[in-house]
């Protein structure tokens, strides 16, 4: 059951075991991705308690919905991060709908300025490599595209909200969003690397 026993296991093997109600497999996935989820949630929500809740709820849903994950159709990490991201967006939109929100705790930081505070070294090399890849890719796209990408992904803003925030035409925001993501895709494709590649 210790994480070290299967730290080298493929994510798809682990998610298959989770689908068969192997909680130790979920623990491996937690040890592998909870740090990323927590950092992302904290980045998006700016509140440690809410971020902790997002982590727990994300892996609870992984446990509950593992049977719906189709092996071979996508990355396990991307699926987990998608769950966490959607939870954060829902929370942000609820906060915006309420008169008083906890957004005051939100401390916006540029993606390129996020510290690496990971403490577990089991997957540290993989995490560092992935972070390096994404940061390098982000560094290669224009800053206005990176800004839109950051507001969309970590700010949880819709394109119309981004346009309002930046006081830019909605068409411009749509174009920047599309170009940013396409550029990121092409950069990563050129590097022939994906999020799961390092675990496969």
């Amino acid at each position: 059951m210790p994480a070290a026993d299967s730290s080298a296991l493929d994510d798809e093997v682990l998610i298959t075991r989770v689908a068969h109600r192997d909680s130790s497999a979920l623990e491996h996935l937690y040890d592998r991705y909870a740090r990323i989820v927590y950092a992302t949630a904290l980045r998006m929500l700016g509140n440690t308690e809410l971020a902790e809740d997002i982590v727990q709820e994300t892996f609870w849903r992984v446990w509950r919905r593992s049977t719906s994950f189709t092996v071979g159709r996508g990355q396990v990490a991307g699926w987990i991060f998608g769950i966490a991201h959607n939870l954060c967006i829902d929370e942000l939109r609820r906060q915006r709908a309420r008169p008083a929100t906890v957004q005051s705790e939100h401390k916006e930081q540029a993606m390129l300025e996020q510290p690496d505070l990971q403490g577990d070294v089991a997957d540290a090399a993989i995490e560092r490599e992935r972070r390096r890849i994404i940061l390098e890719a982000l560094a290669q796209i224009p800053s206005e595209q990176r800004e839109v990408l950051e507001l969309a992904y970590f700010g949880g803003l819709s394109q119309s909200e981004i346009a309002q925030r930046l006081n830019s035409p909605i068409g411009t925001v749509k174009t920047r969003t599309r170009l940013a993501l396409q550029k990121m895709r092409d950069l990563l494709h050129n590097q022939k690397i994906g999020a799961d590649d390092l675990h496969d």
């Binding site: 950092a39 390129l112 510290p115 505070l117 990971q118 890719a137 992904y153």
Partner: peptide
């Protein structure tokens, strides 16, 4: 799948 890594690790 890689964008979250931009937020760091904690």
């Amino acid at each position: 799948g890689l964008l979250p890594y931009a937020a760091g690790s904690l």
